[in-house]
Design a protein around this nucleic acid. Sequence first.
DNA 1: TGCGTAACTAACTAGTTAGTTACTTATGGA
DNA 2: TCCATAAGTAACTAACTAGTTAGTTACGCA
Lengths: 209, 209
Amino acid sequence: MPRTRRQRRPRDAEATRRTLLDAATSVFAEHGFAGARVDEIAERAGVNKRMIYAYYGDKEGLYREVLSSRLSAPEASQIVADTGEPRRALERLVRWYFRLLSEDGAFARLLAWDMLTGGARRREMLLDSAGPALELVTALGRRAVATGELGPGFDPAKFRAAVVALGLGYSLQHPAMEAARARTGARFTDEEFVDYACRLLLGPGGERG
Amino acid sequence: MPRTRRQRRPRDAEATRRTLLDAATSVFAEHGFAGARVDEIAERAGVNKRMIYAYYGDKEGLYREVLSSRLSAPEASQIVADTGEPRRALERLVRWYFRLLSEDGAFARLLAWDMLTGGARRREMLLDSAGPALELVTALGRRAVATGELGPGFDPAKFRAAVVALGLGYSLQHPAMEAARARTGARFTDEEFVDYACRLLLGPGGERG
DNA sequence: TGCGTAACTAACTAGTTAGTTACTTATGGA
DNA sequence: TCCATAAGTAACTAACTAGTTAGTTACGCA
């Protein structure tokens, strides 16, 4: 008995590219580079595997595209802008970063995967993308110290490291904590944790460095 | 020309088991479960691959053993003991955890890998191992609040999540920051970051929650 | 209308990987 | 001393996986 013939995909190169990239994003986020299967990406996208090699060269090339498509987000500086209130701006920056990670779990996982597996080259990519944000923190911190909103001991590098650690570490823990909710009584929302993190990082009102 | 015959391994089951476990620990820490190669583990241990299957059943079994051999470390409570000074005890607990992660990079990476890849079952394992520590934090926090060393808002669950996030997130960032040292002027030692983290989590002298 | 080419497809291949088989050798107790 | 058995080995296999080949279909343009 002859199978129903699979309907042929309409000829739309751009759409195919995008579909592949989306599927790759979720598969790489789920399994990491080594664990991801090219066949699974193709199947999830509903696109012939050959197209991956036509558009992205190879698995590595596709992975690079996935990463850089997510990392080109220097919106940070725009989000904060210049409001004249450095401490508030810092807090908004922290909240923006946390929201970025918690709303887009795939992105958080990609970051984590890449920090674990990425070679020196890919790590430079990550850092390049983080560079502008660090400069912003440095500038804001300096102003906040000048206005007395933060103590004189404020160190932008440590602050940035702590923000990244808290954000990344929290989203890494998230599934485990979710699974634990049933047993342990301890429960709090993501929002509550962000509030807590902001208080830790910037103090309750703004008198600590 | 006949090759020099490889010297046969002395018959010592226990030593072979341990050697395999050590090799597996470093290979799994480097590449994660999916990325690790059974052949590489065997070669690094200098043990025939077959022995892995004899002693640990399969790759998964070996991985489980690696994890549980590291996770059976409920020394936390002993380290802190009952000193009567809850805030100091909490600080010692935090420093112990950070030292654990930073001194044993393989352990930190294993934890991170497992949080990314581990299914529900393995995550329960992780949480079980973290359970006693959480109870300890809860008890200490309650006492610290009672003595006024910490503010009344202290939440042990959030505190624990923040400690884990800071520790895990920091060690994840570590290689990337190391690579960045050359370019950015920002540099600080691990010790300095731990001090910073303790100040964040517990306040400079002990008046915040 | 028909033709050149870009988009797409199915089936294949070469190489890798977890896991196995069938065997040899050392060790300790009867 | 001899043999039962645990420890160890080399070579193999079945399944899988990234990447390729050779060919088919649809679209734009002359």
